[in-house]
């Protein structure tokens, strides 16, 4: 693929965009996983949210 005399500018623009977008995707996936693990750890310790307790009481 010949991008002509300005190939460096074109590939740099696409390269930087791919890097930042990949970082955004990775951050989104890892953050949710991290919070899920923290939540599971707390639940395993028997700690529950007041809304969950109230919901159980309502049946």
């Amino acid at each position: 693929m010949d991008m002509g005399p300005h190939a460096t500018f074109i590939w740099t623009a696409y390269g930087l965009s791919a890097t930042v977008v990949s970082a955004l995707i990775l951050r989104a996936m890892l953050d949710e996983r991290r919070q899920r693990r923290a939540l599971a750890r707390l639940e395993a310790q028997g700690i529950r949210r007041r809304s969950d307790v109230a919901q159980e009481r309502r049946g």
Partner: peptide, 9 residues
């Protein structure tokens, strides 16, 4: 999820 974790903490 983060807010739920904070509430539980």
């Amino acid at each position: 999820l983060r807010r739920r974790v904070e509430t539980m903490m």
